[in-house]
């Protein structure tokens, strides 16, 4: 069963793909019959079925009941794998950013603009997370930047072990900047540490100023808030000061940068933040 959504088929399962190296991933199974002949075949539909049933045997005469004090965090596995990623990033001096937002706030556009303007000075690597399609990876790949697309199927967020698998495909170099574009979702990704150096939440001016308190978890766990689409300010009814006040109520340490990925306004401030934080020693 898929670790995120519970589905069992390849269509909806988690897929990690590179647009330049589209290899299909096949499961090879072998069966040995009574005569000792081996049959090998592949399943391309990824259906994993249990051939046996689980039955509970109730022996009523001797019930040995035992209480185990577990005291274990449920997200322990994700946190462990995130720590592994973090160790890898630190050893290779990689600055990893986890970009989170609702769908349509401009994560990919900001990324495109950033890569276009800075790719000659900073070595970038990108992990794209979406439920379906290679569209975003194709947009990034157009800049000749190494990119891997994770399709989560029905899953609503990226998890740290998937990032680790994607990293293996990326063949990331030392001193690079890794941009992880999470699945467009302002709720679920907040709980899942990927091992990133900084988490950046993106909100656009079309979204309404009370979003930070409607979806507080994401703002609580982020380091920087990028407010995108400021070129639309004359046309939308949003009070940016109010938005920032709400966000600061949730997370008093949050920093803000206002930009427009379309016109390029404010991008320099963002680039300065990126370069400054990249060079800061890790604690």
């Amino acid at each position: 069963m898929c670790g995120t959504c519970g589905c069992g088929s390849g269509e909806n399962g988690v897929r990690i793909q590179n647009p330049k190296d589209l290899l299909t991933h096949e499961h090879t199974h072998s069966h040995i019959d009574a005569q000792g002949l081996v049959y090998e075949h592949t399943h391309d539909d990824h259906s994993h079925k249990h051939a046996h049933t689980h039955e509970h045997v109730h022996e009523h005469e001797q019930h040995q009941r035992k209480v185990i004090d577990v005291e274990k965090d449920i997200l322990h596995h994700n946190d462990l794998m995130a720590a592994r990623n973090r160790g890898l990033f630190e050893a290779k001096n990689i600055f990893a950013l986890n970009l989170v937002s609702s769908p349509g706030s401009g994560k990919t556009s900001i990324l495109e603009r950033t890569l276009k303007d800075l790719k000659d000075t900073i070595p970038f690597f990108v992990i794209e997370g979406d439920q379906q399609t290679l569209n975003d990876a194709n947009r990034i790949s157009a800049f000749d930047i190494p990119v891997v697309q994770i399709n989560t199927g029905k899953g609503c967020h990226l998890e740290s072990d998937t990032i680790y698998e994607a990293l293996k495909k990326l063949d990331i170099t030392d001193h690079a900047v890794l941009m992880i574009e999470n699945v467009g979702n302002l709720v679920c990704p907040s709980m899942f540490d990927l091992g990133e150096s900084k988490r950046i939440v993106i909100i656009s001016t079309t979204e309404g100023e009370d979003k930070p308190i409607k979806y507080p978890d994401m703002f609580h766990s982020s380091d920087l808030c990028i407010i995108n689409k400021i070129d639309l300010l004359p046309y939308v009814n949003v009070n940016l000061e109010k938005l920032k006040q709400y966000a600061l109520k949730v997370n008093p340490k949050l920093e803000f940068i206002e930009i427009s990925a379309t016109t390029g306004e404010g991008m320099e401030v963002w680039f300065t933040w990126l370069k400054k934080n990249r060079n800061q020693p890790k604690n």
Binding site: H63, Q64, K66, I68, D69, V70, E71, I74, L75
Partner: peptide
């Protein structure tokens, strides 16, 4: 908190 505190197993 998001924890498994205890299990009663048989």
């Amino acid at each position: 908190e998001l924890r498994v505190k205890a299990l009663e197993v048989v």
